[in-house]
């Protein structure tokens, strides 16, 4: 066993897993509140990658030189605009279909997903886009030949993701908005009868999910630097796998599922085979669905009478 490879893959897995966790939050919250899988969520993430690049380009054109300042402004801007995307998608594509069959919004979601991909392809071009690396520097442990390293960007990803998840947990558990979200999730009609504007709560959940995806999009773009109009697809499905693994509908489940899936995937590519890592991840999805459909932290669904 090469310990440095193990260490390195754990670091990589943690980084990847935090990203999956952030995106999985969007899937799990939307599923929890209206019981639909928002297949356009991965593409919302893709939009945020483009917004990051655009925002950074505009800031540098205005002569902003401080990297931390540029990143903070970009993050805020991307979260805001992506949130507007999330809100509009729910308003235009899902709300009119509420109360119809369960499949209708699902198909509408696939439509929105295709729409976003093609719109970005037309507007931004089909080629790979990229941004220069903004944050250099690594922490390194070990000798010259065998070492474990964590780049500063990876550290930023882990810290920002955990910060966002902690903030969201606080919001859901402690504030009056969070209480309303939980009530709406448990029994929407009852929440409505108690005077909660559930349509607004559902919109808020879409905005929160999109903003979390935007944090992921910005961080990944800072890390890898390159993206295209199709990145949302695979990442989205992986995050969905993470949400199912953790128990779809459960917020801590999404975070845990994300981190576990990231770790599994990294360890698999480190010790078994890199080419088959996607196959491995989706096998996890299949196995979870067969043996524990309610996920690690989810509850089996009780049919409501």
């Amino acid at each position: 066993m090469d310990w440095h490879i193990l260490g390195q893959q754990l670091v990589n897995g943690l980084t990847l897993g935090s990203i999956y966790g952030l995106i999985a939050i969007g899937y799990t919250m939307v599923y929890g509140i209206i019981g639909m899988i928002n297949f356009a969520h991965g593409d919302v993430y893709m939009i945020s990658a483009y917004l990051t690049a655009i925002s950074l380009a505009v800031l540098s054109a205005f002569g902003v030189e401080s990297v931390p300042f540029a990143i903070v402004v970009t993050l805020g801007l991307t979260m805001f605009i992506t949130g507007v995307y999330g809100w509009s998608i729910e308003r235009v594509a899902y709300r009119p279909l509420r109360g119809s069959t369960r499949l209708a919004p699902l198909i509408s979601a696939i439509g929105i997903s295709l729409l976003l991909q093609n719109y970005v392809q037309v507007a931004q071009g089909a080629r790979n886009q990229g941004i220069p690396s903004l944050i250099d520097g690594v922490f390194r442990v070990g000798n010259d030949k065998d070492f474990v390293q964590m780049t500063h960007v990876q550290l930023l990803i882990v810290i920002a993701s955990f910060g966002a998840m902690a903030g969201l947990t606080w919001l859901i558990q402690r504030t009056s908005l969070g209480r309303q979200c939980r009530a709406t999730q448990q029994d929407r009609h009852m929440a409505e009868i108690l005077g909660i504007n559930t349509d607004r709560i559902i919109s808020t959940v879409f905005v929160i999910g999109a903003a979390m995806a935007a944090i992921a999009g910005t961080l990944v773009t800072l890390n890898y630097g390159s993206f295209d109009f199709f990145v949302g697809f695979v990442t989205g499905i992986k995050a969905f796998t993470a949400a199912v693994l953790g128990g779809i509908g459960s917020l801590p489940g999404a975070m845990l599922g994300g981190i576990l899936l990231g770790l599994f995937e990294s360890l698999f590519s480190g010790f078994v085979n890199t080419d088959y890592k996607d196959v491995f991840s989706f096998s996890v999805l299949v196995l979870v669905l067969i043996f524990r459909p309610s996920g690690l932290l989810g509850r089996p669904e009780v049919e409501k009478v």
């Binding site: 919001l171 309303q180 939980r182 005077g195």
Partner: peptide
Amino acid sequence: FREMSVVENLLVAQHNHLDRNLLSGA
């Protein structure tokens, strides 16, 4: 709301009275 505490069940019903501004909460 079975998964919420008794007090939370009562708080969530007071939407008319509580300040629901997220920003001021944050």
